[in-house]
């Protein structure tokens, strides 16, 4: 565990807490894409299959439980909670995310570290996470103005994988065996997808103005 990896995990945790705060405090999920939340729930469920079989550390297990639990709780809230689901912008959140699931699954069966259930599911979760933010970014562009908590949620979610890239660079130079190329490439693609969001987020922060994404 190095500082970049820890910073990445904490940033990811903050993004989840900000989203939970937004939904709990405002009893609203306006501006949040249910499809991105569903994709993230699938990412964690397919990546943490070895939750009970491959114990690495208490920290590792706790974080996995937090990510699985929070993503399922958010999906449940947005689908079932009477007040929250009313604020869901169904007609704006129209990205066909099932194609993303299919494409990532096909790619995972072709490109993986070993053709075993665990490795194919792991590669699937890595590819899916790289594109999971697309429905959310499309929704933000369509809905124009972004409320603060939603903007912060997306910002921290994008920043966490950037820290992981620094972590992989660090591990590359400090450890012999390093073949995380699947996670590296997908992580770079994932972070690149946030590039324009980061740009407009920085502009709004610099001008102390509301975050506006061009339609």
């Amino acid at each position: 565990m190095n500082i970049f990896r820890f910073a990445g995990d904490m940033t990811h945790l903050i993004s989840v807490l900000v989203l939970l705060l937004k939904i709990y405090a405002t009893k609203s999920c306006s501006g949040i894409s249910l499809k991105t939340q569903e994709l993230y729930a699938l990412v964690f469920l397919s990546r943490y299959l070895d939750l009970f079989t491959n114990y690495i550390s208490l920290y590792n297990t706790l974080m996995k439980l937090v990510f699985i639990g929070s993503s399922l709780a958010i999906v449940w809230c947005m689908r079932m909670h009477h007040a929250v689901k009313r604020s869901y912008d169904k007609e704006v959140d129209t990205f066909r995310h099932y194609y993303l699931v299919l494409a990532c699954f096909v790619l995972a069966t072709l490109v993986n570290e070993q053709f075993t259930l665990r490795e194919v599911c792991w590669a699937f979760s890595i590819y899916l996470e790289a594109v999971a933010i697309l429905p959310q970014l499309v929704l933000l562009q369509r809905s124009g103005n972004v409320d603060n908590l939603t903007g912060q949620y997306v910002f921290f979610l994008g920043a966490y994988r950037a820290f992981y890239i620094l972590n992989w660079i660090y591990r590359y130079f400090t450890e012999q065996y390093f073949t995380r190329w699947i996670a590296c490439i997908a992580g770079i693609v994932q972070t690149a997808l946030y590039a324009d969001f980061f740009y407009y987020y920085f502009i709004s922060w610099k001008n102390n103005a509301k975050l506006q994404l061009p339609a």
Binding site: D9, I56, N60, K64, F67, E113, E119, W122, Y177
Partner: peptide, 10 residues
């Protein structure tokens, strides 16, 4: 072993 398989990251 050869290929990195412990998936110790989140």
């Amino acid at each position: 072993e050869g290929i990195y398989h412990d998936h110790d990251e989140l």
